[in-house]
Design a protein around this nucleic acid. Structure first.
Length: 433
RNA sequence: UCCCGAGUAGCUCAGGUGGUUAGAGCAGCUGACUGUUAAUCAGCGGGUCGGGGGUUCGAGUCCCUCCUCGGGAGCCA
């Protein structure tokens, strides 16, 4: 084996040179005395050309016996070739089998059912579309870190094993020594508020868990959430930050992941149309609008999935629905001084039917009002002692939000179901692989 | 938990109102072909029709039941 080792993405710049590339066989075609091997190495795909009468017989035989996903090293000359995917191909002079692959590799270049693909998720991830999705995910994760780093936010990690606090949806419990049951965190927000009092502006980035028996394209039982919490931000500042973040993410995807978006057949004109400012619709106005469109919603109800779809249909950008009735929202949201029936909050709904991607609010900073709400909701007061302490010792105006990573990726990538945007999805009926 | 829908070859599916030996495409294997892009052509192998029970001379097909999965609702990000 001669020639320096290269990765496929670097090959167009190495035209005319002898290189060795290692990767997995995506496809083999023989055409009598010439054959083609499509090689995948995670950075791209490479067409390798084998010509029978220019190769030792044993090399040709090795080539024709290759199976899908065999791991190989191929050596040859890089040449620019418009007929090849990526614009460059390899004229092969030597081939080495690094790892054989059985002829029964289950994933074929054709349609498969969802259940079958998820059963083989560990192999499905090797396919082009899945690689593109994971690279988009990576890009957006990095963009989130870049966004907050540039604004001097501190990334702070919150516990996953918690006592029973947090929101109202289902909890996963697990036995915890002599302390009774521990629960997998549904949110790091309350801890984020404590950290905001220490550091000013923070964000969390990690997995959260919801034991909801939801079987829809928008739900996972384990999903990743980013939860910023900002001292001295009111709800207006909060929404402004959310808008800047979403615009930054869309811009980053368009700037650096066009090839992946093309593989995903994303209509990028829909992303290019996403510009600020995003509409901010008061909950009361939303109810009126929805009633005009035939919804049976009445003031006080939370918006149903159908209501959200009706509302979003009029806009090309995400929208904020602001200031819900307090009964529809969590106890920690700050009472709206202009209308005490409501709280200072907003849900951000993505366009194109991707649903709610952000939920945020200004937090109740008045100790007595917060305690009243905890009692009103019938929450275990003792468990919230430390949280109430944040209002006893230097309470402060602060706000924050939670953005669902998978829903955001699904929207930007145009992926219909969130199960495809996380490497190993956890859902109601799926714990493996 | 509720409402729809689906389980037939390794995969994706077709199989009126029940009727002989359950089919196709893809994948695999054998062969032909010097520029293919999920190549093409010829041939070969491949089935507990999701499980159980019932009706019938006869069930992939009709009935009951259970299981699994998908979509949606509620809840949420």
């Amino acid at each position: 084996m001669t020639g320096r080792i290269e990765r496929i993405a670097a090959l167009p710049a190495a035209a005319g040179q002898q290189v060795t590339v290692r990767g997995w066989v995506q496809h083999v075609r023989t055409q009598g005395k010439v054959g083609f091997l499509v090689l995948r190495d995670g950075t791209g795909v490479l067409q390798c050309v084998f010509v029978r009468n220019q190769l030792p017989p044993e090399t040709w035989d090795l080539f024709t016996a290759l199976t899908q996903e065999a791991c190989v090293a191929v050596t040859g000359e890089v040449r620019l070739e418009p007929r090849a995917p990526g614009g460059a191909e390899l004229g092969v002079t030597a081939l080495a089998l690094l790892g054989a692959s059985g002829a029964d590799y289950p994933i074929q270049p054709k349609e498969h059912g969802v259940d079958f693909l998820l059963d083989h998720r560990h192999l499905w991830l090797r396919s082009q579309r899945q690689v593109a999705i994971m690279r988009l995910r990576h890009e957006l994760e990095q963009a989130i870190h870049d966004f907050f780093y540039a604004r001097d936010f501190v990334r702070a990690d919150t516990p996953i094993l918690t006592a029973a606090i947090g929101e109202r949806a289902g909890l996963f419990g697990t036995e915890y020594f002599d302390e009774g049951t521990a629960f997998l965190a549904q949110t790091g927000q309350l801890y984020g508020e404590a950290l905001a009092a220490a550091l000013g502006r923070i964000y969390t980035f990690g997995p959260t868990f919801r034991a909801e028996k939801s079987k829809t394209r928008r739900h996972l039982t384990e999903f990743w959430m980013i939860e910023p919490e900002m001292a001295f931000y009111d709800q207006g500042d909060n929404m402004q930050l959310q808008e800047e973040l979403l615009l930054f993410l869309v811009e980053r995807a368009l700037e650096r992941r066009r090839p992946e978006l093309a593989i995903l057949e994303r209509d990028v004109s829909k992303l290019e149309a996403v510009k600020g400012p995003f509409p901010r619709i008061d909950y009361g106005d939303a109810v009126t609008t929805l009633q005009g469109k035939g919804s049976s919603i009445t003031w006080g109800d939370d918006l149903g999935a159908e209501d959200e779809a009706l509302l979003v249909a009029d806009y090309a950008t995400p929208i904020f629905v602001c200031n819900y009735p307090k009964e529809a929202k969590a106890f920690y949201m700050k009472e709206n001084p202009a209308d005490p029936r409501t709280v200072l909050c907003a849900d951000c709904l993505a366009p194109e039917g991707y649903g709610e991607i952000i939920g945020g609010s200004q937090r109740e900073d008045d100790h007595d009002k917060l305690l009243h709400r905890i009692r009103e909701e019938g929450l275990p007061e003792a468990a919230y002692g430390w949280y109430l302490d944040l209002r006893k010792y230097g309470t402060f105006v602060h706000s924050g939000f939670g953005i669902g990573l998978e829903r955001t990726i699904a929207w930007i990538g145009g992926i219909p179901h969130v199960r495809e945007v996380i490497p190993f999805p956890r859902m109601m009926h799926r714990l493996t692989p």
